[in-house]
Design a binder for these strands. Structure first.
Lengths: 337, 337
DNA sequence: GCCCCTCTTTGGACCGTTCCAGAACCTGTC
DNA sequence: GACAGGTTCTGGAACGGTCCAAAGAGGGGC
């Protein structure tokens, strides 16, 4: 009652196991009648190739590991989708591991993936342990997707272009007539890029002295508190650009509680185009990070490296787009200038 | 430069490969000095066991497949967390596959998992193809988690107790003084259970004739439209119980647009305790499905079946809890009675 | 010194594939 | 009808582990 093997198929088709192997791998050096006999026998027996045996023999698993930072992060789903579409076309499987789920065990979250001998690794989001990753990158291709961090040599990197995204937002607000604009900044490489680009864009438009930056913790609560502070100032800003959607939701709450209407009295903008931003109840103007393209590009980098291993680590930045929804509009007349 | 094998370790430690195997599997039939030598050699060489080779030999992979319906569904993360905690303790790995991602390829979404010869399968959410699942269940343990559906024989089932959850909500509203209560129903087994339990509870409290049911499509837009209809009725309900959080958000939008304050003029309740419900901006009263316990119980069922295969399919219902937040309160005085 | 018994250690078969060298079978040519 | 050259097929050796029967080592009793 054990699952049929290649030998069972061979016996049933009256050929050698080697021929069965040839047929199943699509060789054209096989006479059609034998090919048909083999395929029929395989179908009749319900044969499925044993991936473990194949991996052992081929010395590769046709599987790439995807190390996620936290399944709760919503923005990575599009990324996975893009990643999967290309990998699947290349005959590769995705093996997902959540670093957060395994964190409590203390071991390196990539270990299980490496034990399974994945052919490549995609790290989505912030790196777990850069040093460990460097060692991994010496053996198999590694791509960092959706984050901007210093990476070990030979590691490719794909992410949304945060500087461009922040510029799109800032210019959108300036274009609407806003002058005094606040930024709810975050932390980490991504937070820094968005903040710097905001500042640079304000400077370019001669508004350096009208820019305000409040640093938060990238949570709703942080966004709420920072916004309360901002909007209680005598020279309160007419627009708030939050480092991410969740912070922006906090900003929205704050504005509402202070009796300000959005976007009539104050405009707010988020970042990431998460499902939350699309709730009609919130309907945040935000930036779409082109997650799908980030995923596709990560897959492309990986497939490249399977064909030609080695070489410098590359960086690709996907162009984000502005999603203008209901939380941005012209500034109130009284605050103009 | 190939990764070291058990034989390399053996040579370095001056023992046979069999002894290395014994040591690495934790046998106590080994003299301590040899054990130390082996462990040292393994460490020095950076030896990692080859999962493919082990699987091939052991005839099992120590891996369970987790078939997700859609990674975008947020409620499954707790479930995975619970699942993982127990599986990990049992030395098992989780292999995630997203049915939606693979749907376009037309093949059964479980196929890649079966090719990899997973030892068990957890299907999270709605079944892809019940017939195919039956065939799978004859070979390996299968558990359906987080959904209520007719399953093939021998398949275990774990889910939140939707009847109890709906009862909690309905009695909460009745307890607050509401009498005319509407339910925004969904579809599928879960939608039916919640609706029926709502109706039954209303009946128990002698309010059968005050219950209103509107059927929606479990989307925000559907919740919005159904609520506009409901609240425009002359005898408009003072409370709305939505089949899930996202529908509830739609209901909230509708109430707001009609100029009704929540919970002052109308109470609304969701279901699933998603992250959206916890946004302070929305702060929905909702039902927590005990996802973590569902996951743990699914793992327990699986581990049971590894030890004692066969037997009837079992059903476990995890007790949900009511999360009372900001969208429920007593009905307005005018509408009382 | 020999036998028996227990505790350690070992060689080799096996798991289900792939891959390679070479066998077997054609077909056509001289 | 032998031979060359191509096409088609096959046996056996990997791949890196596990597991088992049996060998070796050491100790105790007679």
């Amino acid at each position: 009652m054990r699952p049929p093997t290649i030998r069972d198929v061979a016996e049933r088709a009256g050929v050698s196991k080697s021929l069965v192997s040839l047929v199943l791998r699509g060789s054209d050096q096989v006479r059609p009648e034998k090919r048909d006999a083999v395929l029929r026998a395989a179908r009749e027996l319900g044969y499925r190739p044993n991936a473990a045996a194949r991996s052992l023999s081929e010395q590769r698993t046709r599987t790439v590991g995807v190390l996620l930072n936290d399944l709760r992060n919503p923005w990575f789903v599009d990324l996975l989708d893009g990643l999967n579409s290309l990998l699947h076309a290349g005959g590769l499987h995705m093996l997902l591991a959540d670093a957060r789920l395994n964190r409590r065990t203390g071991q390196d979250p990539a270990d299980p993936l490496l034990d399974l001998r994945v052919d490549g690794l995609v790290v989505v989001g912030t790196l777990p342990d850069p040093a460990a990753l460097g060692a991994v990158a010496e053996r198999i291709p590694v791509v960092l997707a959706g984050a901007r961090e210093p990476v070990p040599p030979g590691v490719d990197q794909v992410a949304g272009d945060d500087e461009q995204g922040a510029r799109l937002v800032t210019e959108h607000l300036i274009g609407l007539g806003h002058r005094r604009i606040a930024h709810l900044a975050g932390y980490g490489a991504v937070g820094d890029l968005r903040r710097r680009s905001f500042e640079a864009t304000m400077r370019t438009h001669g508004l350096a002295d009208r820019a305000v930056v409040e640093t938060g913790d990238m949570t709703e609560e942080g966004g709420y508190r920072a916004t309360v502070r901002l909007l209680s100032r005598p020279d309160r800003p007419t627009a708030v650009f939050a480092v991410n959607d969740i912070t922006c939701v906090g900003a929205l709450s704050a504005a509402e509680e202070l009796g300000l209407r959005v976007p009539h009295d104050v405009s707010v903008v988020g970042y990431d185009n998460t499902s939350v931003s699309r709730l009609r109840h919130l309907w945040l103007t935000t930036v779409d990070n082109a997650g799908h393209e980030v995923g596709r590009r990560a897959a492309r980098f990986l497939l490249d490296r399977f064909e030609r291993p080695g070489g410098e680590g590359r960086l690709h930045l996907a162009a984000p787009t502005l999603e203008i929804r209901g939380t941005t509009g012209p500034p109130p007349d009284t605050a103009a200038g």
